[in-house]
Design a protein around this nucleic acid. Structure first.
Lengths: 187, 187
DNA sequence: ATTATAACGAACACAATGTTCAATAACATA
DNA sequence: TATGTTATTGAACATTGTGTTCGTTATAAT
């Protein structure tokens, strides 16, 4: 990729990130983005068709980074004292979110969080699907998957909104306790 | 309230509901609303300051209706075969959502759902708070409350997105099973 | 050094915003 | 029914944002 393109793309992402922390996504204008990024109007439209296009690209960039290990390998990481693979994997994701260079905290805790959450869940579905066969079913499988993904996403949002006062390890543990305890099959 | 005001307000709500089913909230313009409602431009601004103001008013109207019984009385309703008050109460709410005259389905299943969900959760917090002392704690109380509210809201969204193929009774039962089973205190 | 291509910036037509104001219509009340 | 009140109307207005075009300039790649 041309260095100029990369530089422009970065400037747009950075400007957009700054703005999204200050105000709701729907109230951000392309005008503000190009002013903040200090680029020409036509340059923006050479990179992204719409504002929605930009948000999607930013989320994809971030999540590909956060979920990189999780999506590629089957190995589990031992950040937690937990014993099962899911808890370790979730702990790992929380660590990534906490240490991320991009201000994910700002984006997710801002009023723009809803759209971010939507893309976040798309990635979580991939993770949780791998564990679904290990969970005891008290309800239809699609209900359970939706429930696990949705409630973990809610957990993450809550964790971030509350200034991450709990450790990734504790947060993942609480989640497993409340969502999965007594539901892991003995195998 | 002046009949003219009521008529105009209804026309705006109806127009807005129609539009919100077709396209995302952020892409709806005031212009479209007043065209659809067939009212004068200045009339709209006499009723609502902004588009956000309108959405909030619409949600408030809907939720005050759906949650009316739940918020006012302590009595439980026996729509379900369930035995504890929470399951009956949630079943009742699901029935209200299903039977509502306003097209809640359209609003919640559209791309505008996120904002609706935010207001929805505000009401759910009131409901769930009453039951929190009956739930065994495996995690901090605020974590549990957030988890219960968030996952029930997700359940409702899933239910609606899936064309409500399960009954309110079954849906509430699944939710209680997955979220609260083994966590109700014996008292 | 040459070629390709990215960014620039000015200009454009168009659409939406939010406000104002005088005229008209519908309402409430006695 | 007559009277004062209030809501709606429609047109006008300045302002802001949109998405596109195009010739020029600057920076890459080879």
């Amino acid at each position: 990729m041309d260095r100029r393109q990369q530089k422009t793309r970065d400037a747009i992402f950075k400007a957009f990130s700054n703005l999204i922390e200050q105000k709701r996504y729907g109230n951000i204008t392309v005008q503000e983005i190009i002013d903040e990024a200090n680029i020409g109007r036509s340059t923006f439209y050479a990179h992204f068709e719409t504002k929605d296009d930009l948000l999607k690209a930013l989320c994809t960039d971030i999540f590909n980074h956060v979920f990189a290990d999780e999506l590629m390998s089957e190995k589990t990481h031992d950040f937690s004292g937990g014993n099962n693979g899911l808890e370790a994997k979730l702990t790992h994701i929380l660590h990534h979110l906490k240490d991320s260079e991009t201000n994910i905290v700002g984006i997710l805790s801002s009023e723009s969080g809803e759209l971010f959450m939507r893309y976040f869940k798309d990635y979580l579905i991939v993770i949780f699907s791998k564990y679904l066969n290990e969970i005891k079913m008290n309800a239809p499988a699609d209900f359970v998957l939706n429930h696990l993904v949705g409630s973990f996403a809610e957990t993450v949002k809550w964790w971030i909104d509350n200034k991450m006062i709990y450790t990734p390890e504790d947060t993942a543990k609480y989640y497993i306790e409340v969502s999965c305890a007594n539901r892991i099959t003995d195998k």
